[in-house]
């Protein structure tokens, strides 16, 4: 009993000082999908492999639409991409007020369901 009391008095708390001290994100974490459309040939392999149908590739328009909120972060698209355009970023997707698609046509654009940016 007295041991428990003393050890609890003098040991560090089990929790973290959250906003000040963030949890360290592990290496190789499948955080969120990051597109880099510079080398993209719009082959559509990522869209084909995606189990959640979160990616749409429009080849003639050279457009990739990515639905961040359907994505299950399985990293299948990153494995399927032969050009190395898709990486899993070491950070988690941030919360947001609106559900937005990420559209890549040259520069990445954020649009909501109606196409407004």
């Amino acid at each position: 009993m007295i041991n428990n009391v003393l050890s609890n008095l003098f040991s560090k708390p089990a929790t973290r000082d959250f906003p000040a001290k963030m949890r360290e994100i592990a290496e190789n974490v499948r955080g969120s999908v990051e597109f880099n459309t510079e080398n993209c040939v719009y082959c559509g392999a990522c869209a084909l492999k995606c189990p959640a149908n979160a990616i749409e590739v429009d080849r003639p328009a050279k457009k990739v639409t990515f639905d961040l909120y359907k994505c299950v972060a399985c990293a299948c698209c990153a494995e399927a991409c032969r050009k190395g355009c898709i990486q899993m970023a070491k950070q988690y997707a941030h919360p947001s007020y609106r559900k937005m698609d990420v559209v890549f046509q040259g520069e990445p654009l954020l649009t909501d369901a109606n196409g407004d940016s």
């Binding site: 592990a26 290496e27 190789n28 974490v29 499948r30 972060a73 990293a75 899993m88």
Partner: peptide, 9 residues
């Protein structure tokens, strides 16, 4: 934490 480190999730 082990899952986070070894599997990425």
């Amino acid at each position: 934490d082990i899952f986070d480190k070894t599997a990425g999730s």
